[in-house]
Design a protein around this nucleic acid. Structure first.
Length: 584
DNA sequence: CTAGGGTTAG
C-alpha cells in the first residue's frame, strides 16, 4: 500500500479517502496513519473521514474519532448529529446535545434539523417540547427547514392540532413544507385532512409536484375515493408533472385500495417499468381483494422474470393463501422464506401473524397455538391478536380466554382485543362475562374504536355511524333502508341477530342491526349513485355477518355490484354472492 | 463542507 519512507501529505490522504469507498477497516488504517504522521490535519479532512464512517454505519468509531479531536467546530458536531439520525440512534443524539451544551458550544441553524428529527425517532413528547423551546430560544423557528422538522415531529407524536397550528403560522411556506405536511397527514391516517390541505395549497397558488401527487393518491386509496384520485392524476398529467414510477405505483395502489382490480391490472400491464414495489403492490392488492389465484399467479410470473421478492411480497403471498384457506400452500411459501438463506427474507413477526391467521381461520386453532409457542421470535400483540380473532370466528371460548389474558398483559390499551373477547362470550350467551370485560375496559380506560362506513359521492366523502341521523338526506336514507329490508325479507333474508353483542330482546336486536353504518352507506349510495356504477363502501372495522348477508341480498335485488372494503379485505358482492365465499 | 417531502408492508 504505502511505502514507509514516503512522507504522508494531505493530498495523499484525500486521495486515499476517495479510493477507500466503503471499507470501514481501511478508514481505521487511514485514521491511524493520520494520528501517527504528526500532520496537523485540517478538520475538513476529518469531516470527510467522519462522513464515510457514518455512511457505513460505524458510529462507534466515528464517535471515538470525534472525541479525539481538539475543540471540534460546530459543523463537526452537526456531522455527528447527522450520523446518529441516519443510523437511527436518537438517544445518542440527545446525549451528544447535552455534551454540547455542557461545553458551552452554541448550536447553529444546521443543528436543529438533525436534533429535532432525532427526537421524532426517540418518540418522547416532553423531550420534543424541550427542544422546541430551545429552537425558540435561539430564534431558529422562523427557518422553514427547522419549522418543517418541528411540524413533522408533532405529527409523528400524534399531536395533529399542534402540528397544524405550527404549519399554519409558518411564513412563506415552500413546496417542500407543504409536501411534508400532506405526506405526514396521510402517514398518520388523516387522509381527509391531507386532501383539505392539498386544496388549500392550490388556493395559495403553490404549484404541486410529483411528491404531492403521490401523497394525494395514497390519501385517496385510504379513503376509497377513486374519482378524486383519478382527477388529481389527470391534472398532474395535464400540468406536465413528471409521473415517475413512484407516482405510477401510488396510482396502482389507489386502484387496488378502491377495489378496481381490473383497472389496476390494465395499468400494471401498461407500465413502462415495474420494480419490486409495483409487483408487491399488485400481489398484496389481489390478495386484499380476495383474488388469491391471481396473486399467486403473479408471484410465479415475477419469479419467472427473475425478480427477487422481498418481505412485503411474501406478506401478500401469505395473506393470499390465508384469504383462500390454502393451508398447505401457505406453509410451502413460508418454508421458502426460511430456506432462502437470505437474511433479509427470514420471516418477521408479520409473517408469523399471517401464518397464525391462516391456520386459525381454517380452524386449526391448536396448531396455530403450537406454532406460536415454537416460533424463534418473541410473539407480540399482533400475533396473539390473530389467534384471538380466529378464536372469535370459531367461537372457541376456552382458548380465547387464555389468549385474551395474555393480551391484557402485553397490550392493555388496545380495546379491539377486549371487544373480541366480549364478542366470544356474547356468542356463547355468557352475558355475565361480557359485563365483566366491559367493566374492566371502563376501569382501565380502554376505548373501542367507533365503527363507521364511508361512501364517495360528488367529490366528497360521506361518513356514516351506526344509527346516524346527521346526514342531510337522513330521512330518505332510512326510508330506502326500510323499503329494501321489506323486499329482501320476501326473498328470504333473516336478520342474523347473533351479530348483536348485547343482551337485549330479539326485536331490539333487529332494529339495532338494521341501522349499522354499512347499511346506511349502501342505502345512501343506492339513492345517489348512478345505476351503472358499482357501490363502493369503506368500513374502518371488520364487517358483521348480518351486513354481509344484507349486501348479498341487495346485490341480487338491485342487480348492482357492491364493493365493500373492511379492515382486513374486500368483499365484492354480485348477484347474491360474495367473492370471499364466506371465508373471512 | 452540513438541513426539510413520496410508493408496497406495519
Amino acid at each position: 500500500m504505502l511505502a514507509k519512507q514516503t512522507p504522508l501529505t494531505k493530498q495523499m490522504l484525500s486521495k486515499l479517502l476517495r479510493a477507500s469507498s466503503s471499507k470501514p477497516k481501511q478508514f481505521k488504517k487511514i485514521h491511524a496513519l493520520v494520528l501517527t504522521s504528526g500532520l496537523s490535519v485540517k478538520n475538513s479532512l476529518l469531516t470527510q473521514l467522519l462522513e464515510k464512517l457514518i455512511l457505513v454505519g460505524d458510529m462507534c468509531y466515528a464517535r471515538q474519532m470525534f472525541d479525539e479531536m481538539h475543540k471540534p467546530r460546530i459543523f463537526l458536531w452537526n456531522t455527528l448529529f447527522k450520523g446518529y439520525v441516519k443510523n437511527q440512534l436518537p438517544l445518542e443524539s440527545v446525549m451528544l446535545y447535552k455534551n454540547m451544551r455542557d461545553l458551552d458550544v452554541r448550536p447553529d441553524e444546521f443543528t436543529y434539523p438533525f436534533v429535532v428529527k432525532a427526537i421524532s425517532q426517540l418518540g418522547v413528547l416532553p423531550c420534543g417540547f424541550a427542544f422546541h423551546a430551545h429552537v425558540l430560544k435561539y430564534g431558529f423557528e422562523t427557518l422553514g427547514i427547522v419549522a418543517t422538522e418541528l411540524v413533522m415531529m408533532y405529527m409523528k407524536f400524534g399531536e395533529l392540532s399542534s402540528a397544524e397550528f405550527l404549519f399554519e403560522s409558518m411564513q412563506g411556506k415552500d413546496l417542500v413544507a407543504w409536501n411534508a405536511f400532506i405526506a405526514a397527514c396521510v402517514q398518520t391516517g388523516n387522509s381527509a385532512i391531507a386532501l383539505e390541505y392539498y386544496h388549500k395549497m392550490c388556493e395559495d397558488a403553490v404549484q404541486f409536484d410529483s411528491f404531492t401527487v403521490v401523497s394525494v393518491l395514497s390519501a385517496c386509496g385510504q379513503l376509497g375515493s377513486l374519482e378524486i384520485g383519478k382527477q388529481i392524476y389527470d391534472r398532474a398529467r395535464k400540468e406536465d408533472i413528471d409521473c415517475n414510477i413512484i407516482v405510477e405505483n401510488a396510482k396502482l395502489d389507489m386502484y387496488l385500495k378502491c377495489g378496481s382490480t381490473e383497472a389496476a391490472r390494465v395499468l400494471f400491464d401498461e407500465m413502462r417499468q415495474r420494480n419490486i414495489v409495483s409487483w408487491s403492490t399488485m400481489i398484496v392488492g389481489y390478495a386484499m381483494n380476495g383474488d388469491s389465484e391471481e396473486a399467486l399467479a403473479l408471484f410465479t410470473m415475477m419469479q419467472n422474470e427473475g425478480l427477487r421478492p422481498n418481505y412485503v411480497t411474501f406478506l401478500g403471498v401469505l395473506s393470499a393463501c390465508s384469504h383462500a384457506g390454502l393451508v398447505n400452500e401457505g406453509k410451502r411459501y413460508f418454508n421458502l422464506m426460511v430456506r432462502s438463506n437470505d437474511k433479509n427474507l427470514q420471516p418477521r413477526k408479520e409473517h408469523y401473524a399471517c401464518m397464525v391467521d391462516l391456520l386459525g381461520r381454517s380452524g386449526l386453532l391448536e396448531e396455530a397455538y403450537e406454532f406460536i409457542k415454537k416460533m424463534p421470535l418473541e410473539p407480540d400483540a399482533g400475533i396473539w391478536g390473530a389467534l384471538l380473532g380466529a378464536c372469535a370466528v370459531h367461537c372457541d371460548m376456552k382458548l380465547g380466554q387464555k389468549v385474551a389474558d395474555l393480551l391484557v398483559e402485553t397490550a392493555p390499551d388496545i380495546g379491539a382485543y377486549q371487544v373480541l373477547l366480549s364478542n366470544i362470550y356474547a356468542a356463547a350467551g355468557k352475558w355475565d362475562c361480557v359485563d365483566k370485560v366491559r367493566s374492566k375496559m371502563r376501569k382501565l380506560g380502554t376505548k373501542k374504536v367507533t365503527a363507521y362506513s364511508s361512501v364517495e359521492f360528488d367529490g366528497k366523502i360521506h361518513v356514516f355511524n351506526r344509527g346516524d341521523q346527521s346526514h342531510v338526506q337522513s330521512k330518505a336514507i332510512y326510508e330506502k333502508l326500510e323499503e329494501i329490508l321489506k323486499k329482501i325479507r320476501n326473498m328470504g333474508y333473516v336478520p342474523h341477530t347473533g351479530s348483536v353483542f348485547h343482551d337485549v330482546e330479539t326485536e331490539e336486536k333487529e332494529s339495532s342491526l338494521s341501522h349499522h353504518s354499512e347499511k346506511l352507506a349502501i342505502a345512501f349510495a343506492l339513492i345517489n349513485g348512478r345505476p351503472e356504477h358499482p357501490i363502493r363502501v369503506m368500513k374502518n372495522l371488520r364487517t358483521c355477518d348480518d351486513c354481509h348477508v344484507f349486501a348479498k341480498f341487495v346485490s341480487r335485488l338491485t342487480s348492482r355490484d357492491i364493493i365493500m372494503r373492511d379492515k382486513n379485505r374486500f368483499h365484492h358482492f354480485r348477484n347474491g354472492a360474495c367473492s370471499c365465499r364466506e371465508f373471512w
